[in-house]
Design a protein around this nucleic acid. Structure first.
Lengths: 168, 168
DNA sequence: CTGAAATTTCAAAAGTTTTTGAAAGTTTTT
DNA sequence: AAAAACTTTCAAAAACTTTTGAAATTTCAG
């Protein structure tokens, strides 16, 4: 397989992969394109490579910047803005974990804590099942939360070297 | 907050949560409803509780069964089918991990392995960046794969008891 | 300042996913 | 063997999401 084909496949499957993870196809494709570009790209470069409109590139680039996955780069002597993606996959992963934890897990745990305090007779099986379920979710979520916190703060070498010895 | 309100909130936020994870709103809501129901429910029960059509319930229940999260239950002396969800959150989580690993991670790793073998001069920076990125993703993915395998096979007590001592 | 280049915005169009509900299919009962 | 009870299917409609592109805004070199 030559580079052009391989690029196409990578970009298109990263896009498909993204859709399973609540990220839209185009955002994931732009990210993929930037991941494999040795140099920063401009909006026009991205429009050309992926055949998408200016507005679309602009919006999705902005989201990628919000997620902390892409940075604006100003090339000296150039008027226009360029964009480049964080290339270290460990950093990419921890950044995504950090954001999703903040956006999804943390609010969910807050809600579960509130719902656990539902009023009602704990001997009523409907109340009991509700409280048990919510509390089970909260417990599990808190374990996950702690684990992800450590992962986000950890250095890759510690993680891969020390912790991964358990997984053999 | 009374039970009815709490139920509503739980179902609706579980639905919203699901959409961030590539699961459709209704499927997640049905799952939520079954999680907090002490007894199995029929299609009609679900239609009523969530105000959705018969076909919709049927399709989404089928998907939940495919995911291994819901089971058909035949109540003695009853003609119709009832459905009940696995209530143990640890089992629910490992089941989801197992399925997503199989459906998404495994094929992705296969693709990365193929793409890593792209032909071309490794001194060309475009080729180099492509291979480095793909290989970085493969490495990370394989670590994750191993870790998730252990998690899926592990018993909850081992996981929470032994492993979680690391996360303090 | 000025005006050309670059970026951002956003309403409308295109595309995608989900839902509905009636018809077809299946199983059970009489 | 026909009717009744229940389940599944699927084409069309509705709802939702993404993309476009032209206009508005911002930026900056001269």
């Amino acid at each position: 397989m030559n580079l052009a084909e391989a690029k196409q496949q990578f970009i298109s499957s990263w896009g498909a992969f993204g859709t399973h993870w609540g990220i839209n196809r185009t955002m994931a494709q732009i990210h993929a394109l930037l991941l494999i570009s040795p140099d920063p790209l401009s909006q026009d470069d991205i429009m050309q490579e992926l055949n998408i409109s200016r507005g679309n590139v602009n919006m999705n680039i902005r989201d990628l910047i919000d997620w902390g996955l892409v940075q604006r780069v100003l090339l000296p002597g150039e008027r226009r803005e360029y964009f480049s993606a964080e290339k270290d996959i460990w950093k990419v992963a921890t950044q995504i974990v950090k954001e999703r934890k903040k956006r999804e897990l943390d609010p969910m745990l807050k809600l579960m804590t509130r719902l656990e305090a539902v009023e009602g007779d704990k001997k009523d099986k409907h109340v009991k099942q509700f409280v048990d379920t919510v509390s089970g979710i909260r417990h599990f979520g808190q374990q996950a939360d702690r684990m992800l916190d450590v992962m986000v703060k950890a250095d890759e070498n510690w993680f891969v070297g020390t912790l991964m010895k358990f997984f053999r």
